[in-house]
Design a protein around this nucleic acid. Sequence first.
RNA 1: GUGGUUUUAGCUCAGUUGGUUAGAGCGCCUGAUUGUGGUUCAGGAGGUCGCCGGUUCGAGCCCGGUAUUCCACCCCA
Length: 460
Amino acid sequence: MAQIKPSLAKGTRDFSPEEMERRNYIFRVIKKVFKKYGYQEIQTPSFENLSTLTGKYGEEGDKLIFKILNSGDFISKISPEKYAASTAKSLTPLLSEKALRYDLTVPFARYVVMHQNEINLPFKRFQMQPVWRADRPQRGRYREFYQCDVDVIGSESLINEAEFILIYHESLANLGLTDFHIKINNRKILAGFSEIIGKPHLLIDLTVAIDKLDKIGVEGVIKEMEEKGFNAQDISIIRPIIDLTGTNQSKIETLKKVLAHSEIGKLGIQELETVLRYAHKLNRLVDSFIEVDITLARGLNYYTGSIFEVKTNEANIGSIGGGGRYDDLTGMFGLKGLTGVGISFGADRIYDVLLELNLFPENTNRSTEVLITNFDIKAEDLALDILQLIRSKGFAAEFYPTTTKLKKQLAYADNKMIPFVILLGQEELETGLVTLRNMKSGEQQKLSKQDLLTFLIKNN
RNA sequence: GUGGUUUUAGCUCAGUUGGUUAGAGCGCCUGAUUGUGGUUCAGGAGGUCGCCGGUUCGAGCCCGGUAUUCCACCCCA
């Protein structure tokens, strides 16, 4: 077999033991909060039927779905005439009928519809699994990354929204982040804008343009609106709210005036106020983390109510989480009338931020607690006895597998940050006492088996 | 998908107008120390210069293609 130079596929990464230790720390912290708020874990397959995923993420989104090539001689099933008449888009379903999941929300909707008779509404689930996107990689943007999703389906109460704000706040605070904002908006407010200028069909174009405010500025947004077919009068109505500043309350007051004649807009404001009120009631400390931001649009086509996005001000890495309410997600799979709301954490971006800010706890990469050295073959029997004795008490212990120089074995323990090393050789065999070395202080003491266990238990 | 950028030892990076044998720090191995790591000292190994092709007497350096990295768009976690 020809030698292949080893390399990773674009946008993917290996995770070392140290990185896994840190990644698991993030998952552990987030999962604990999810459970605390009554959510239960599920998992869904890495890949779904292609038809389950297509059409859910918009034109651009569909292009980013990783398709899986059919097995077998799929070419023979496509006649030359058919091939000649096809486009890349029409050919795809003939070549591929499976695809890697693009997010966790659509598979969840599929799950809810398929298991509708077993689940207990309102259904509160969380899911922490990798997703794949055929995007061009950048800092904080990978082709394989983990999302941590929490959603509740079958409850229209805005208490859910308020609790998600608390979940964001509590999780990120527990991870050591202090300077972040949970941005909130409501899709109905955006719909109100397009209603008052009489162009509801341009809602998507309007939100996409407004979304770019912090990147291209007010003039840039206006220019884009002009290109999308908004006239000067439309823009004069929208302009006062594009670069809205001030407190959340003063923003809401302005919105009330602008949207006074839009029923949907007024409903959106009312929902927004209710969410803020519930969040305040549950935990006043989250108030200062919430930022009403009407430029927040989010691309996903299915949001209908509240929209969330979390940004940290301590690192330039885009958003570390997002979510919102969708009134009709399961409708695509034939189950009407179920509303859902949920949020997602981007674990990989949170990892990058914590690493940059040096917020990972120390010693998370310690695994083995005791190493038994192996430099005298005559002591092997005793070493194996002690090894299992230590393990039986619940300590992580290992025996250096080959007889070699002590120097090398201590260097191994040092690199692996093993705090205690047991030296076992001729001397120990004669006295019946083992030598225990504290790798941090360099102190050594001779102990009987029983004293050794007592010592370890005391020092754990 | 569009435009730009990066790639040289295990890692982080130098490398002059194209000119003999491509360097440093860290890491690794050996020894000082045959039962003692993290410090110190001495020595050593390790490179088809991302890959393919071209120009040239001669290419790490110039040109074309390709992969990859990062950046700006698009979009998003």
